[in-house]
Every structure is written in structure tokens, then in C-alpha cells.
Amino acid sequence: MTPPAVPAETSGRQPEPGLRADAERNRERILAAARRLYAAEGLGVSMAAVAREADVGKATLSRRFATREDLITAVFADRMDAYAVTEALADPDPWHGFTRYIEAICAMQAADRGFADVLTMTFPAAKALEERRAASYHGVVELITRAQAARHLREDFTHQDIVILLMANAGVIAATGDAAPDSWRRLVGHLLRAFATPGTDVPPLSPAPASTALYRAMIRLGRPGVGTS
């Protein structure tokens, strides 16, 4: 009887360079496809759709990324690093650092529907992503504490309010789409005014969207499937 083949990992042989290069190319194609689909449609995109977009087989996708959480982590880990509050904490003005942070993460939400989903969901199985989220959380708490100590941020503002803000912003982004794409800026401006203590300087309020643009957004929202991931 012919003995079973010994896998390369246990035989001491390294994969041929050509095979490693092909595997890396497939991985990059998958990540690029997932980024495009997640940005446009949110995290509801199926793994099968990602495989089709990347022009690879489902087996190839599962070899590179065994689970949906693995793929999401690979796509958004660097975005979560950018979402960290390091730059905001380095601002010598605690209130300016706080407003800068809020505006930055809301802009990132608006630019990428998938990232908007990541910010308002949890992925217990995606440990690397959750570790990055935890690191950002501690930075946010410090940012809030500093702004309150400077007496510019309301004392009753809590870190939970950040999550509520992100959920509200995600809802506006999903509802308005490209019909009134800058509406989120108006929302964030009003919320920063609500968070500020009396007499605190606040960023200028963005212009209100045109009535016709909001009307188009309302019509769009009434279509089946719009506004959901």
C-alpha cells in the first residue's frame, strides 16, 4: 500500500516561491474586493459575494480567511488603528482635541459603510479587532475626562454617548446616501453644540442640506432594503 503523502508543513520542505507568491496575490485580491464591497454595501455582504468580486473560488477564500470575522479583521485592523485617539490626545487644547476626534471618526463612517458598521457592532470572535477597539476605548475615556476637566464638555457626558452618536450618524449616512451626502456634518455640528458647556467655542455649523436633496433622500429611504446593511 502506498503511504499517505506527508504534508509540506511536517516534511521540512518549504512551499515553492511561486506558490507563496500566488497565495499572497490571492489574499490581496480578496482584501481589495472585500474593501470595495464593504465600503459600498456594509458588512452584510456575503463571503460568496467577496469571492466573486475577487474572482477566486470559495475554497481559496476559506483558505485565506476561514471565517467572516477573520476577513473583517484583516480589512479593518488598520482602520481601527487610524480610529485611535492618539492625535486627539496630543492636542494641547482638550476641547479642540475632543471635537477633532468626533469629526474625524464621523467622517470615516461617512466614507466607508463597512467601517460605520464596525464602529457600532462587536465581534467577540475577532480578538485582534476587539483588542484595537479596547485600546481606542481607553483613549476616548481619557479624552472625555480632559475635556470635562477643562470645563468645556458637559459633566453628564459619558463614553456611552460616543456609541449613541456613532449609531445616530450611521443612521443618517445610511438614510441620506448620495442624495444628501453631507447631512451627517449638520448632525455632528448640532450634537457638538449639545455636548458643549455654555460659553464654549464650537466648530461652525455646516449648511443645512437643500430641501430637494432631503426630499430625494426620503424617497430613497422608502425603497425596500435601503437604510439597512
Rank of each mutant, 00 (worst) to 15 (best):
P3Q: 12
P7G: 02
A8S: 08
A8R: 13
A8V: 13
T10H: 11
S11C: 02
R13A: 15
Q14S: 15
P15D: 03
E16H: 15
E16C: 00
E16V: 04
P17R: 12
G18I: 06
L19K: 12
R20C: 02
R20T: 09
L31N: 01
R36S: 13
L37D: 00
E41P: 02
G42S: 09
G42H: 10
L43K: 03
G44M: 03
S46Q: 05
S46F: 03
M47F: 06
E53D: 13
A54D: 00
A54N: 06
T60M: 12
T60V: 12
F65P: 03
A66V: 11
T67I: 02
E69Q: 09
L71Q: 12
V75I: 07
A77N: 08
D78A: 15
R79V: 00
A82Q: 13
Y83P: 02
A84F: 00
T86C: 01
E87G: 06
A88D: 09
L89Y: 09
L89K: 01
A90I: 01
W95Y: 10
T99P: 04
T99G: 07
T99S: 11
Y101S: 00
Y101E: 05
E103L: 10
A107Y: 03
A107P: 03
A111Q: 09
A111R: 15
R113K: 14
G114Y: 01
F115L: 15
F115W: 06
V118A: 04
V118I: 08
T122N: 12
E130M: 15
A135H: 06
Y137E: 11
H138W: 10
L143R: 01
L143A: 03
Q148R: 05
A150M: 01
R151W: 08
R151L: 09
R151P: 00
H152L: 07
H159C: 07
L165E: 06
L165V: 03
L166N: 08
M167G: 12
A168L: 14
N169K: 03
G177R: 04
G177D: 04
D178L: 08
S183T: 15
R185L: 10
V188Y: 00
G189R: 02
R193M: 07
F195R: 04
F195T: 04
A196T: 03
T197R: 15
T200I: 07
D201K: 13
V202N: 05
P203S: 12
S206E: 13
P209F: 08
P209D: 10
A210W: 04
S211L: 14
T212I: 12
A213V: 08
M218K: 08
I219C: 10
R220N: 09
R223W: 13
R223C: 05
G225Q: 10
